[in-house]
Design a binder for these strands. Structure first.
Lengths: 230, 230
DNA sequence: CCAAAAGTGTTACACCTACACCCATGA
DNA sequence: TCATGGGTGTAGGTGTAACACTTTTGG
């Protein structure tokens, strides 16, 4: 890239690394892969890639997540920039981390094979290369604070879900158990969920009713000054 | 920079922009300057500079704040990376924003002259170049959430301060008035402030007692599981 | 009929909010 | 003596946390 104004300035490789989160088996999971290039080829790594000149950083992150999961239209937010000099063993690379919350059911398992990707439980996360584990820790912090004040958790679930599932999602985010009655009471009095007639019988004989998130109602309530807190 | 492993990748100019905040006249202020280089020379801008190859991004941000304020040993945190393609009019520049909380009394006014820097009230912030105003807005959001759960406000004050001053600091951060009695009650029952014998008589005839933040006690209480919230 | 998960209310306590008057002092 | 900002207490309401039993149904 030629510079008209800013001459004699150093330039840097810039990458994006994506903390792609899904919810399965009552636990948060993160999509990790075996790195396909040197150095540390074969090491466990987040999904990442270099930023190309014709795209913004946000676009690069979206592209990377799309490539690796086959999912478009994803909830993503930036975690931050990681700029230690030797964070990448090969070269000076500045990386911008993003977290993405996806519905794990939409995940393309063929792509998983292709990229040697797998979902790892956050409670049993193996060591990752470079500073990727720090990126994950930072993400979990952000998620815990953010999930408490915005209903972002629903991005991890399908259209419909049961209250026990929703509760175990929040338990997994906060890494602590929640009282069933208090949880249901709070959620239901918020009046942002709609109960359906169907039941999910996959995890109990009695079955649990499906609910769905009513975004219109939520937006309306926020408009009126309601404070969401979980 | 020559690349051993990562060939044919685009590289980028990377800058840091610093939202340097101080507290004066019962209001938060941000240090802004008139830009010294083209393009938009003379435009109002945050303090910034390019990252140099031999330094981490954090180090670059510290360097920039030191250069412009003369203050070392500063509370700084990253706001995030700004990577839109055309955010800088001249070239593709990726910028990482940091906010810094400084004691305005330590600010070197000679440097202010040198760099044509001045403190602008956040409630009357003029237009800034590029996406700098968005950086400021993002910072204020972070500050409001962070100040509520960590005692970072003290970084904006000197060693000792009065309760009316502390209250007006928080009022300025949250942009809303706080009840005097409730504020004092909460602060004092937290037991992290130490009352001094001296009074500040600069803003009233009666004078207000000075207090100071007891960090040891605070750390101890956090250790015991206390939750700071303001 | 039994195991296993879904569903349901009440009470005590802590915290937050609202609110009005006296105090100390320099000019 | 008076104007100005500093300092103090209480009561009501809101939200939070703790707690145990009944219901449903497939196997």
């Amino acid at each position: 890239m030629t510079s008209t104004f800013y001459e004699n300035k150093d330039s840097f490789l810039v990458a994006v690394d994506c903390i792609i989160m899904g919810f399965r088996d009552n636990e948060l999971h993160i999509l990790i892969t075996r790195r396909q290039i040197e150095p540390l080829k074969g090491g466990l790594s987040l999904m990442g890639g270099f930023v190309n000149a014709p795209e913004s950083i946000d676009e690069a992150a979206k592209r990377v997540v799309g490539e690796f999961t086959g999912i478009e239209d994803i909830f993503m937010e930036q975690v931050g920039a990681y700029g230690e000099i030797n964070r990448d063993l090969a070269d000076r690379v500045i990386s911008v981390a993003y977290y993405a919350l996806v519905d794990i059911e939409q995940f393309d398992t063929l792509l998983a094979k292709k990229y040697d990707a797998r979902w790892a439980r956050i409670t049993m996360l193996p060591d990752l290369i470079f500073d990727h584990k720090k990126m994950v820790r930072d993400t979990i912090n952000i998620l815990q604070r953010k999930a408490a004040i915005k209903p972002i958790g629903f991005n991890l679930l399908g259209e419909q879900f049961t209250l026990p599932t929703l509760q175990s999602l929040y338990e997994s985010i906060y890494q602590e158990t929640i009282d069933k009655r208090n949880f249901r009471k709070k959620l239901l009095t918020m009046d942002i969920l709609e109960k359906l007639d169907e039941k999910d019988k996959s995890s109990s004989k009695r079955g649990a009713f499906y609910y769905q998130f009513n975004k219109e109602k939520y937006d309306q309530l926020i408009e009126q000054g309601m404070h969401f807190s979980l």
